[in-house]
Amino acid sequence: MKQFILTVWQFYRDGFRSMKLGRTLWLIILIKLFILFFILRLFFFPDFLNQATEGGEKDGYVSHELIERMP
């Protein structure tokens, strides 16, 4: 299994090295991932759980909300 993973890694590594735009493409991919996971999370996904709870009663808050919202 370890040899298989190493072979796959070498295959992709050598493939991207031989590409002319390989490094540029990886840079674009990494920049897009950074924007998606860090920048957008800060602005569009605030941490409601920490704002709604005081101290550390997250489990109680979640269980209360689940019970209250049941149809």
Results as ranks from 00 to 15, higher is better:
Leu66Lys: 10
Leu33Met: 13
Thr53Tyr: 00
Asp14Ile: 03
Phe48Met: 13
Glu54Gln: 13
Leu33Ile: 05
Trp26Ile: 09
Asp14Glu: 14
Leu30Ile: 12
Asp14Thr: 05
Gly56His: 03
Gly15Asp: 03
Thr53Val: 15
Glu57His: 11
Trp9Thr: 01
Leu40Lys: 13
Gly55Asn: 15
Phe34Ala: 14
Val8Ala: 12
Lys20Arg: 13
Gln10Arg: 14
Tyr61Ser: 01
Gln3Pro: 00
Tyr61Ala: 02
Gly56Val: 00
Gly15Tyr: 14
Ser18Gly: 04
Leu40Gln: 09
Leu30Trp: 11
Gln51Gly: 04
Pro71Arg: 11
Glu54Arg: 03
Leu33Val: 06
Glu68Trp: 02
Arg23Lys: 13
Lys2Phe: 04
Gly22Ile: 00
Leu49Arg: 07
Thr53Gly: 01
Leu66Ile: 11
Val8Lys: 01
Val8Phe: 05
Leu49Val: 10
Asp59Glu: 13
Thr53Ile: 15
Leu66Met: 14
Trp26Asp: 07
Ile28Tyr: 12
Phe16Ser: 03
Gln51Arg: 11
Tyr12Leu: 06
Ser18Gln: 10
Ala52Leu: 12
Phe45Ile: 15
Met19Gln: 13
Lys32Gly: 06
Trp26Lys: 07
Ala52Ser: 12
Lys2Arg: 11
Phe11Cys: 08
Glu54Met: 08
Glu65Val: 11
Ser63Ala: 05
Lys32Pro: 00
Gln10Met: 10
Met1Gly: 08
Leu66Asp: 03
Ile67His: 08
Ile28Cys: 12
Asn50Leu: 11
Trp26Arg: 10
His64Asp: 09
Glu65Arg: 05
Leu36Pro: 01
Leu21Arg: 12
Ile39Thr: 09
Met70Ile: 09
Phe16Arg: 05
Phe43Gly: 03
Ile5Lys: 06
Lys20Met: 05
Thr7Leu: 10
Phe38Ser: 13
Ile28His: 09
Lys2Thr: 15
Gly60Asp: 07
Phe37Trp: 07
Gly15Cys: 02
Ile5Met: 12
Glu54Trp: 02
Lys20Ser: 10
Gly56Ala: 01
Gly22Ala: 00
Leu6Lys: 06
Trp26Pro: 01
Trp9Pro: 00
Gly60Cys: 01
Ile29Trp: 07
Met19Pro: 10
Leu42Met: 07
Phe16Pro: 01
Trp26His: 06
Val8Gly: 00
Gln10Trp: 15
Asp59Arg: 12
Met19Ala: 08
Thr7Pro: 00
Lys58Cys: 02
Val8Thr: 09
His64Gly: 01
Leu66Glu: 06
Lys58Asn: 06
Glu68Ala: 12
Leu33Phe: 08
Ile31Phe: 15
Ile35Glu: 04
Leu49Asn: 06
Glu68Arg: 10
Gln10Asp: 03
Leu6Glu: 02
Thr24Tyr: 13
Ile67Glu: 13
Val62Thr: 00
Ile31Leu: 15
Phe45Glu: 04
Gly60Arg: 12
Phe34Pro: 09
Val8Trp: 04
Ile28Trp: 11
Phe4Asp: 05
Gly55Ser: 09
Leu49Phe: 08
Ile31Asn: 03
Glu54Ile: 08
Phe34Thr: 14
Trp9His: 03
Gly15Trp: 14
Gly15Gln: 05
Phe48Lys: 11
Ile5Val: 06
Ile29Arg: 08
Gln51Glu: 14
Trp26Gln: 08
Gln51Asn: 09
Ile39Gly: 01
Trp9Arg: 07
Gly15Arg: 07
Val62Lys: 00
Thr24Ser: 11
Thr7Trp: 13
Ser18Ile: 14
Ile5Leu: 14
Arg23Asn: 14
Gly15Lys: 07
Leu25Ser: 12
